[in-house]
Design a protein around this nucleic acid. Sequence first.
DNA 1: TACTTTATTTATCGGTCGATAAGTGTAAAG
DNA 2: CTTTACACTTATCGACCGATAAATAAAGTA
Lengths: 226, 226
Amino acid sequence: MMDSPPATDVLSQETPKRGKRRAPGERRKEFVDKAIIFFSEVGFEGGTRELAKRLGVTQPLIYRYFPSKDDLIREVYETVYISRWEDQWTTDLTNRDSQVRDRLIAFYDSYTKVIFTREWMRIFFFAGLKGLDINKWYVGRVRERVLIPVCRELHHAFGISPDAEITDEEIDLAWTMHGGIFYHGIRKHIYMLDGGLGETLQVETAIDMFFAGLEKFYAERKLKQV
Amino acid sequence: MMDSPPATDVLSQETPKRGKRRAPGERRKEFVDKAIIFFSEVGFEGGTRELAKRLGVTQPLIYRYFPSKDDLIREVYETVYISRWEDQWTTDLTNRDSQVRDRLIAFYDSYTKVIFTREWMRIFFFAGLKGLDINKWYVGRVRERVLIPVCRELHHAFGISPDAEITDEEIDLAWTMHGGIFYHGIRKHIYMLDGGLGETLQVETAIDMFFAGLEKFYAERKLKQV
DNA sequence: TACTTTATTTATCGGTCGATAAGTGTAAAG
DNA sequence: CTTTACACTTATCGACCGATAAATAAAGTA
């Protein structure tokens, strides 16, 4: 079940003039949430005064909740990267009750619902261009918790010995599929251009391309056994 | 002024510190070239003083050659985007002397040689995140001069009537292939992570995936006629 | 009620930025 | 050699940025 967004407290009207007390934990979360939207739009070079204006407070108040702008930024991308990751993804991908193709489609349908948003995409690239470690860490997570499990499932589905190691080449193939899907998100949210296929169909065709490529790959390497 | 010049003008040893005349056009080009490298590393928010230091000159000199920082930046990405495009790409892609698969591989081998560089990739995303028009313009150019010609060649290769229109869905399929290849560049130059396959092999497998996907696409739509 | 606590504001500092004006010295022109 | 042109410098301005200190007002506590 999808929890509906918390009904924003009935606008306490304007004229927040001065000292509008709120619970501190709640306030902090509100700051981070709005900072995500703010920084995703203007980049991490966006000023704290402009951010404060959007929060409806004065600039020094930000420093009561975060020691520095960098700390706030760190919290922003940790929230985006970590809290939006769902462990269920790996669980479902490795559940052999259904065909691996269907599992892949279901995964990317769910995954793209999370990452194909303006904030996620832009925060991701702002952080990537900054050369932050968390970005490499995230790509590593995709590799370990998605692509490698997927390759393992494919070995099983293609009847390859469970002892056969997963090669870097196979993972590169999986990255090509992943990139084909991911690029649609780039086009939509970085370049603001939409595609002709719906998102589900984009995912399906990318996965079908991947399977066709795998057939060729395994055939050439004489690994296919069925 | 009180400060007495060192009067050591005699020892104009090593790098000539002052008044090092050069041809103005040459100097301008040198500024743009170094600015490409500089901005690709630190982003367009990089300071003019830091840039000047790398150029070995003082900061105000930049404003003798460019009216404003924005003008310099505009020249930077126009140089990267426009001057590195080769019209021969479209010519070769539509030359039916060889198989379309071979043409595609040859194109992406050449294209990735140009764009899979740290400067190109990073300038591209810095500009994309800034929401610059030139970015959409570039994506439009790839569509018009690569993907649509490719789809037309594929129609011919697959024996589809020359009157059949190229659909948005077909172009989306081509974008998936393009994105699969492009993403390897992102991994390498934005995340600084290398893949297992060589670049040529990455291109080949992405194209083979694409062809396999096309087969399925045309079969389902009953457009295939051979 | 008076007292304490703290969320929030006002005021401000030092640093950096893009940009401009004025000075300086060398190369080129005569 | 003298004069002129201009590539390049020094000095500086006003705006903005991140961050801090002190003042203020609202909430909690008695």
